[in-house]
Design a protein around this nucleic acid. Sequence first.
DNA 1: CATAAAAAGGATAAAAATGTCTTTTAATCT
DNA 2: AGATTAAAAGACATTTTTATCCTTTTTATG
Lengths: 143, 143
Amino acid sequence: MLSNSSKYAIKGVLYLALNSDEDHKIMVRDIFEVVHVPEAYLAKLLQELSRHNIISSTRGPKGGFYLSAEDRKRTLMDIVRTIDGEKRVKSCVLGIQDCDMDNPCVLHKLVGANKSKFIKVLENTTILDLIEGKQEIKQFFPF
Amino acid sequence: MLSNSSKYAIKGVLYLALNSDEDHKIMVRDIFEVVHVPEAYLAKLLQELSRHNIISSTRGPKGGFYLSAEDRKRTLMDIVRTIDGEKRVKSCVLGIQDCDMDNPCVLHKLVGANKSKFIKVLENTTILDLIEGKQEIKQFFPF
DNA sequence: CATAAAAAGGATAAAAATGTCTTTTAATCT
DNA sequence: AGATTAAAAGACATTTTTATCCTTTTTATG
């Protein structure tokens, strides 16, 4: 449902949400170990998000990645869409092309409700929602 | 969440559930077009299921794959476990190793409920449940 | 202005998933 | 018994995903 890349990206953004702002930019070097993602790979993903204006970044000394106030209003789906593409997330559980609620396959009926909810969570949850009331990194990355 | 292979396998088994029994075995050749899965690949998947006694088969003339009465009591999870392995399905949404309901990451709390339901559907739904009252292939494979 | 810091970008590599082909084995039918 | 049929098995090919490396560009700072 979610690729590893999307998971990685979400973890990276969560770390930024907790630790960064315009005045405190963060280098990939300081993130990757906490979220257990290979350094170069995480860099690629964050660059991709930055290029699509899901997160922010500046180069050079004192540079790094960070989340602006606007960035924090992005939803999880914004991240997933950038990394995986919307199609992948929303595709039919059985992979039947034009399958939807109007013309459902059996499995779709069974699990469709759950999957729809999952997608709704992605679409309706902003980064800000996620970190609300949480100041401890441990709460996000228990290991 | 489910690999393509698992989806393919489920589709193949559904076809068998509708059209086969001990006296009417079916060759891969007669299935693959209906369920839109490459012939050789579907063969492999069904062979794997047969090897694990999730479905039945015999070789030679009049041979083919079929579902015994026992086979029909298998759950979707039996299929998915054989093809993908249980780990893959049940893994944390964010891929955090030891993440579970007792020690959850943020996302887990959010989508955990939905995912748990999805897994329960897989575990509690038998092939028999799925085809109950359905005789039309179209209901399963609309395209 | 020189230097160093950090993201951006591109090329490449490794691994996993997906897909194909050929040979072997077992069952059936003449 | 011999010929034919169909799954079983395993080797091989392709594609996608995941991951690394190296160079270039941008930017802050002394």
